[in-house]
Design a protein around this nucleic acid. Structure first.
Lengths: 347, 347
DNA sequence: GTGAAAGCGCTAACAT
DNA sequence: ATGTTAGCGCTTTCAC
C-alpha cells in the first residue's frame, strides 16, 4: 500500500538483464543459466520482491484458486476435511476460498456465483440440506470448470464424488442393533433429500428387510440438530409399543434423542439402544457413550482436493463420472450394549 | 476454460460504444446515461459476461480479498464468527480466504506468508495457542496492510483487537462459584500465553483475591481438549483437601473434567462445582448441564470484518490501537448449583 | 542462454 | 455523456 511494490522490471534493471530472464529465472526455467538463477533469486529476496498473482493470472488465464462450499464449518468432520484440502492445495500452490451455505440452497447458489465470478479454477462442494438439484452450478459445467462433490453429493449421476459408503455403514450399524437384540427399530433422518441421508436410510431399510422379524419406522425432521433430537425423543416416547433401537442419522441429533429419552425417564441402553453417525467428539461425552460410525475427514479432504488438482494440472487423462468411496468404521460403545451386558451407566 | 471469455470489448463492439463506457455502465457510474446502462447490462447478461477480477485488481492495485487465519474451524463459536465475517465481506464485495493454523505458530506464519503473497487487502487473525510474538506479521505492518486481531489477540498493545472481556467474564463466573459456597477453587487453563487465557486467569485470581477465605490453585495443560480435561480430573481427584469448585477455561476441557470426575465417582455439583467458558452446544448435553460464559460469535465476526473493511474503504479516519470489547453473559446451569439446591442429576 | 515485444482485460486521467 | 489512451506486472512466442 505505502511502499511501491518491487516488480521483475526492478530486478531486471538492478541486474542488467531483461525482464523475461528474471521471469524465467524465478520459475527455475531450465533454459536459464544456474548462476543467473542464483543471482536473480538472491536479488529478489534482497529487494523484497513478491510475485503479482493478478498479473500472472491475467496473463495465464487461470487463478490457482479453488473454491470450497460447505453447509457449515462447525463440525470436527468438516474442520478435518478443510484441513486436508488446504494441505493439498497449499502444497500445489493453490489458494482456497471457503464459504458456508448454512444449509440453504439460496446461499449456496450465491456462493457459487461469487466463486464463478472470481474465476476459481475449480470448486469442491458439499451440498446444503435443501439442495434438490444443482442447476446453480451450470455456469461451471458450461465452461468446463471442474466441480467435485464430497460427502453431500447430488443424486444425479455423472458427477465426480467423494463419499463414504453411507449405505454400507448404515446397514452395518443397523445390523449391529439387530444383533444386540433389537426387534423394533426407528430411524431418525432429515426430510430433505441430501444424498448421505438417503443412502443411510436405504442401508437401514436393507438391514431390516433381511430379517423378517424386525419392525421399523422412519422419522423425518427438518434438521438434525441437538434440539431437534430432543424433540424427537418426545415423539418416540409416545409410541406404543415402544421401539427398542434407534438409529439416528447424525451424532448431534442422536445425542439429543438420547438425552431427551433419559430426561423422560427411559434407560439407554436398558430399554432402548441408540446409535449415531459421524464419531463427533460429543459421542464420548454423553452417558452412555454413543455407538457411531467413524470416517476419516482429513483423508477425505486430501483425496478430494488431490483429485481436483490432478485434473487441473492435467495429470489425469479423464475426469468423468468417477466416484470414490471411502472406508468407514463402526464404533461400538455403551449406548448399544445388550441389556444383559449393561452393568450401570447412571453417570 | 473452453469457451472464450466475454470481455467489455465484446460488449462495446456489440453495442457500438467504447470499452470505457461499458466499464462505467457496469459500475453504474452516474455520468452514464440511464438508457446506456440498461442496454449495457442487458447485453452483458445476454453474452454471459463476467468481470475479470484479475485485470481489475491489477489495474486498481487491490484485491478485494481479506484473509482470515484462525486456530481451528471446528467450534460453533468459530463457525459463527466466520459466518459473520463472510456476511459483511460479501455484502461489501470482498472475498474471503480462510486458513487454519491448527494452533501452531509455524503454520500460522506459513498461512500469513501465503496471504501476503496473494496480496490480501487485509487480514483478520485469531492467534495460535503457542504464538508468543507476532513478527511473522511484520511484512503486513511494513506495508501498512491492516491486520485486525480477534478473540486470541497479541499481548502487545497498539493493535486493533476485538475481544470479549475475558477478565470480567472470568471474574464473574469465579464470583458465582464463590457465591455458591465454594471455598477452594481450581482454575484449569493453558500453559501457553494466549491472551484470552491470561485474561481469564487474571479474572479468576482477582475474584479470589477479593475474598480472603478462598483458596485457589491454577493448573496449566498443554491444550484444552476433551481428553486433556479427562486427564486433569485424575490429578484433581488426587488433591488433598479436595477443591470444591472448578473453573475451566473452555467448555471442552470443562466437560472432560466433569465427565472424568464423575467416572472417578465424584458428584457434580454435589461435591465439586464445575464451570466452563464459551457456551458450546456440548454444555447442554453433559449431565449436569454446564455453567458457562456465552458470547456472540456471529456479531463478533461482523464487527471485526466491518472494522477492517471500513478502514480499507477509507471510511474511518484513523485506525490505530483501537480495541473493542464485546459483551458476554454468564449462563448458570446445574453444574454449579449449590449443594443444598441439588435435587437429582444422575441422568 | 537471453532479449524484444505483444497482450491478458480492465480502469481512469484526460480529452471532447 | 462518451471516447482515447496508457498502463497495471506478468508470460511467452519469436528472434538472435
Amino acid at each position: 500500500m505505502a511502499n511501491r511494490e518491487v516488480t521483475i522490471y526492478d530486478i531486471a534493471a538492478e541486474l542488467n538483464v531483461s525482464p523475461s530472464t528474471v521471469s524465467r529465472a524465478l520459475k527455475n526455467n531450465k533454459a536459464i543459466n544456474k548462476e543467473t538463477i542464483r543471482k536473480v533469486s538472491q536479488c529478489a529476496d534482497k529487494m523484497g520482491y513478491r510475485s503479482n498473482t493478478f498479473a500472472s493470472n491475467l496473463r495465464k488465464q487461470r487463478t490457482k484458486t479453488i473454491g470450497i462450499i460447505v453447509p457449515r464449518l462447525d463440525s470436527s468432520f468438516m474442520s478435518a476435511c478443510m484441513g486436508g484440502m488446504e494441505e493439498v492445495a497449499n502444497s500445489e500452490g493453490y489458494n482456497v476460498i471457503i464459504s458456508q451455505s448454512f444449509e440453504q440452497v439460496i446461499k449456496e447458489a450465491q456462493n457459487a456465483k461469487t466463486m464463478f465470478d472470481s474465476r476459481v479454477d475449480g470448486v469442491i462442494v458439499s451440498l446444503a440440506a435443501d439442495t434438490k438439484e444443482i442447476s446453480h452450478f451450470k455456469p461451471f459445467f458450461d465452461r468446463d470448470i471442474p466441480v467435485v462433490f464430497f460427502d453431500r453429493v447430488p443424486d444425479q449421476t455423472n458427477n465426480v464424488t467423494f463419499v463414504i459408503d453411507n449405505f454400507k455403514a448404515a446397514e452395518q450399524i443397523t445390523r449391529h442393533l439387530i444383533d444386540q437384540g433389537c426387534t423394533y427399530l426407528v430411524h431418525v433422518t432429515m426430510s430433505n433429500c441430501a444424498s448421505v441421508y438417503v443412502a443411510r436410510e436405504r442401508g437401514f431399510l436393507a438391514a431390516v428387510a433381511s430379517n423378517a422379524e424386525i419392525k421399523q419406522v422412519v422419522f423425518r425432521c427438518e434438521d438434525l440438530s441437538l434440539e431437534t433430537g430432543r424433540e424427537m425423543a418426545k415423539q418416540i416416547a409416545l409410541m406404543n409399543p415402544l421401539p427398542d433401537g434407534l438409529f439416528v442419522a447424525n451424532d448431534m441429533a442422536a445425542t439429543g434423542c438420547l438425552v431427551g429419552l433419559q430426561d423422560l425417564g427411559f434407560k439407554v441402553p436398558g430399554q432402548i439402544l441408540v446409535a449415531g453417525f459421524n464419531n463427533d467428539p460429543i459421542t464420548t461425552v454423553v452417558k452412555p457413550n454413543l455407538t457411531t460410525i467413524d470416517y476419516p475427514g482429513r483423508e477425505a479432504g486430501r483425496l478430494t482436493a488431490r483429485s481436483l488438482i490432478d485434473h487441473l494440472e492435467g495429470r489425469t487423462r479423464i475426469f468423468v463420472a468417477s466416484s470414490v468411496v471411502l472406508n468407514s468404521t463402526l464404533i461400538v460403545r455403551e449406548s448399544t450394549y445388550k441389556i444383559s451386558d449393561t452393568i450401570h451407566f447412571e453417570g
